[in-house]
């Protein structure tokens, strides 16, 4: 039971699961209309990718999620930073953020469509709001509990505000942003896909709602797999970035 074989066991379990599913569908134990076998889903996936009609949709969703992610991280980090360092900013921001955190932010989707139209803007906006709130809290609470000793150390070495910012606060923000990154990536895609779900003319969310209205379970599952693949891709990118930015932690 060596841990470095864990991936082999996981792969074997996945294969067994897929085989069971395939077998059950072929033996007529499950209705393939509701639960199409993996071979069927795989076929749909292949057609989607080889046909090429899927690409504009993938691009739309990815772009919306990516822009929302970047803007959300930026805004969340800046606001969290400001809130943690200036009490009067926190006074205004924290209640709003708590409120936004408490409600399921996707309820804003229809409003964004009304304001921004059915194109990419409304999806980016939803993605942005979802990401910005989690990033705000990650950075805000992260900065608030920056090790006091480090701050005092830098002060006694003669460091003023600027040195503190550069040597203590900014590196801390990077730590907390990277810590919140995976959650943020998930939220960014949630925002984009749900936004497309509500009203759109392209994107994976649009295709999903199309699949649903035509009762196409195979297409639905194939699209879910595509979203998962995308999120994993971004997770990988986030990991690479983290190893680069937080070299002091991983070297």
């Amino acid at each position: 039971m060596s841990p470095n074989r864990a991936w082999a066991r996981q792969l074997a379990a996945l294969a067994a699961f897929l085989a069971l599913w395939e077998g059950a569908a072929r033996a007529g134990l499950v209705n393939p209309f509701f639960l199409p076998p993996p071979s069927k889903v795989g076929g749909v996936l292949l057609t989607l990718l080889s046909e090429g009609s899927i690409w504009p949709h993938l691009y739309a969703t990815f772009l919306a999620a990516f822009l929302g992610l970047l803007a959300g991280i930026g805004a969340g980090a800046v606001l969290g930073f400001a809130g943690a360092l200036a009490a009067y900013v926190a006074e205004l921001l924290v209640p709003v953020m708590i409120l936004l955190n408490a409600v399921p932010r996707v309820i804003l989707a229809p409003l964004f469509v009304i304001w921004l139209g059915i194109d990419i803007e409304s999806k980016v906006a939803l993605s942005f709001v979802l990401v910005a709130v989690v990033m705000f809290f990650a950075v805000y609470s992260g900065i608030k509990d920056v090790d006091r000793r480090l701050i005092e150390r830098v002060k006694t070495l003669g460091g003023g505000r600027w040195v503190l910012l550069r040597e203590v606060y900014l590196p801390s923000v990077v730590v907390w942003v990277m810590g919140g990154m995976k959650v943020a990536v998930g939220f960014a895609f949630t925002g984009a896909v749900v936004g497309e779900f509500v009203a759109s003319s392209r994107g994976l969310g649009y295709l999903l709602s199309f699949a649903q209205s035509t009762y196409n379970a195979a297409l639905s599952i194939a699209l879910v797999l595509l979203v998962i693949a995308f999120v994993l891709l971004l997770f990988g990118a986030a990991d690479l970035l983290e190893r680069r930015l937080l070299r002091w932690k991983y070297r």
Partner: peptide
Amino acid sequence: VGILFQDDALLPWRTARENVALGLRA
């Protein structure tokens, strides 16, 4: 005045050299 604290809280994201250079740069 220089102070050596009870614990050695160095900046974890800075190398030994950068930690020492910190005060000089400040």
